[in-house]
Amino acid sequence: MALLKPRRLEYPFTPEQVGSLRAGQFVLVSGLVYTARDRIHKYFFDGGKSPVDLKNAALYHCGPVVIRKDSDWVVRAAGPTTSIREEPYLPRIIKDHGVRVIIGKGSMGKVTEGACKAGGCVYLHAVGGAAQVLAEKVVSVKGLYFGEEFGLAEAMWVLELKDFPAIVAIDSKGHNLLRRVKSASLRMGRKLMKSSDPFIP
């Protein structure tokens, strides 16, 4: 099975690396990623400057639990947050900053499909709620931006990952695995509602 042979993705995420991924594949991500959620997306969308170069970088939709231990930051829990909230902002951010990989969770629509296709970008689905398994893939915290302005959960954390597991949900051709599952379930749902076997007490 293709699944048992994960593809490896390493920062910086080149167009060639990312372009060869296909929806449904299992990947292990290593290297730098930047967390970004609602406040950061709105800030970039409104033309805010990035403190780091996001070309060929990954944005991770995540608001981690991070605590201070002596002079270091320690990640206590770090799974993905729902990505659909950022969909309206993504096309501009991908275009303006050259972001190559989005990591998050949940369904994304046509807007993200289009942005991935136009920008040679992929949307990777991480395992929602698996905050401990995924926190272990964070080797170190390399930096923190916007902590004061947006709060620690909404801040931009620079995380170094090692073999962070995810599934390609949208590839750079715009193929969308989640849309495929949704369409099939909608058809089946309609069939169940039309069935000649209504629920009667």
């Binding site: 639990v65 206590r76 829990a77 770090a78 799974g79 709620g129 905050a131 401990q132």
Partner: peptide, 10 residues
């Protein structure tokens, strides 16, 4: 084992 939150969204 880690005595840490199951999910970061508590």
């Amino acid at each position: 084992d880690n005595d840490a939150p199951l999910c970061q969204d508590t």
